[in-house]
């Protein structure tokens, strides 16, 4: 079965979706990502969907699920590169993906994750200093 490769970059996992997702591939991705977040201790998941010409409610649900699972495992999910036509269609469809963070492109998304990692690092130092 086809699986979508997951790359680890620093504290982030990078997934680039290149082709129309078949349902089984989407389900496999959800599972693989959950495992990888724990194994890699990732603080962020970056999903690049700039190649997707459509996102229907199934893919929308997959993105929301990934974000939900990631949040429970203490990682942020950032969806990047959504096309304007796809964004308009999703909103009309009634899917605004409230739990998912977004960014214009992979660079911005990565910056978002790094900022969060830096902030949590600061918080940890600060907490340590309290003693």
């Amino acid at each position: 079965m086809d699986r979508i490769p997951i790359l680890k970059i620093g504290a982030a996992l990078l997934v680039t979706i290149q082709v129309d997702l078949h349902d089984s591939v989407a389900m496999a991705l959800e599972e693989d990502l959950s495992n990888m977040i724990v194994k890699a201790g990732a603080k962020g998941v970056l999903i690049d969907i700039s190649a997707l010409e459509i996102v229907d409610s199934f893919i929308g649900r997959m993105l929301a699920n990934i974000a939900g699972v990631a949040r429970m495992l203490d990682a942020d999910t950032v969806v990047v590169g959504m096309r304007p036509a796809v964004a308009i269609t999703l909103v009309e469809l009634g899917l605004s993906l409230p739990g998912v963070k977004t960014a214009l492109n992979a660079e911005r998304g990565m910056a978002l994750i790094q900022r969060r990692v830096a902030e949590s690092g600061l918080e940890a130092d600060h907490a340590a200093g309290e003693f």
Partner: peptide, 12 residues
Amino acid sequence: LKTIAAARLMGA
């Protein structure tokens, strides 16, 4: 709200 939601999906 739709317009705002769509802009947010694009990361703005």
